[in-house]
Amino acid sequence: MPPGGADTAEPIRAIRLKHPGRIVFAAVLLLMLALFVIDAAQREAYGWDNLAKYIFDKRISQAALNTLLLTIYSMAIAIVLGVVLSVMRLSDNPVVKGVAWLYLWVFRGTPVYVQLAFWGLIATIYSTIDIGIPFMEPWLSFETKNVIDVFWLAVIGLALNEAAYMAEIVRAGILSVDKGQEEAATALGMGWLLTMRRVVLPQAMRIIIPPTGNEVISMLKTTSLVAAVPFSFDLYGRARDIAVEIFDPVPLLLVASAWYLLFTSILMIGQYFLERRFSRGVGQARDTRRVGTATDVIPTVTGSVTTADKAEGDGR
């Protein structure tokens, strides 16, 4: 595509269309926001002094770390378990399939809050863990509440619930992969598991990553439910406790919200880059010979078409 030959038409420089409605609407919104901010700044209930005092409080930042750890651990377990469950659901073996179906039925059919409360009671229901032959003297016996603390109970509760949702996401990803891929691998003598691991799952990633990013963000917020276990060293639990201590709930809600917002913002940025990475042209369409994705080279309204073409050419 050689730009600027003698007979190329000159780039279009049109006067941009005006949208007066938008400007008016934006002005009204800005005005309302300003009013709200001025009003809020003067209201006692927001307790701005307490907000400033507690936003970087040691207990709060420690709790924020706990919330982050809860999110990371439970998501990590949920992803692994979700992959296993989805592969089980797609298996030919009716027993394996049935087990996966049952799991999904139970864990998606009950509220996560209730499940967390159950995990909290596990030490009451099963006070000892015995290892050995049933109905015989156990070889090893533990007091349940000594082996596992509430933090890990919270992680287990969140992870097992999330795994059911991850399984559906992974399944959708697997089903999106062309049937011919599995067939080609099978024809090469690759077994079913090997085919899944080497051929199908890597391609399913493109479909799996974006909703998984959403799940991570959603999980970060769901961790505030661990009060059901009860685990109270997470961000929201800690903020609530301090609020009770100083009889001032609103600023601590704002403190917690600010931290949650910070984390979700970081995660959203991360998700953006992950998505870009995994959506890179790996499609099998015959006409995808372009290196970048099409959206990389959409010409801007003001720029001329020839510069956009050049940018694409340089990208190769």
């Binding site: 062309d178 011919g180 891929q181 067939e183 080609a184 691998a185 024809a187 051929v199 890597p202 391609q203 790996v282 499609g283 099998q284």
Partner: peptide, 14 residues
């Protein structure tokens, strides 16, 4: 021991 070639190639795109 039996190689197969498909109409739509079915190469592994990744």
């Amino acid at each position: 021991d039996i190689g197969m070639v498909f109409q739509r190639f079915n190469l592994f795109p990744h």
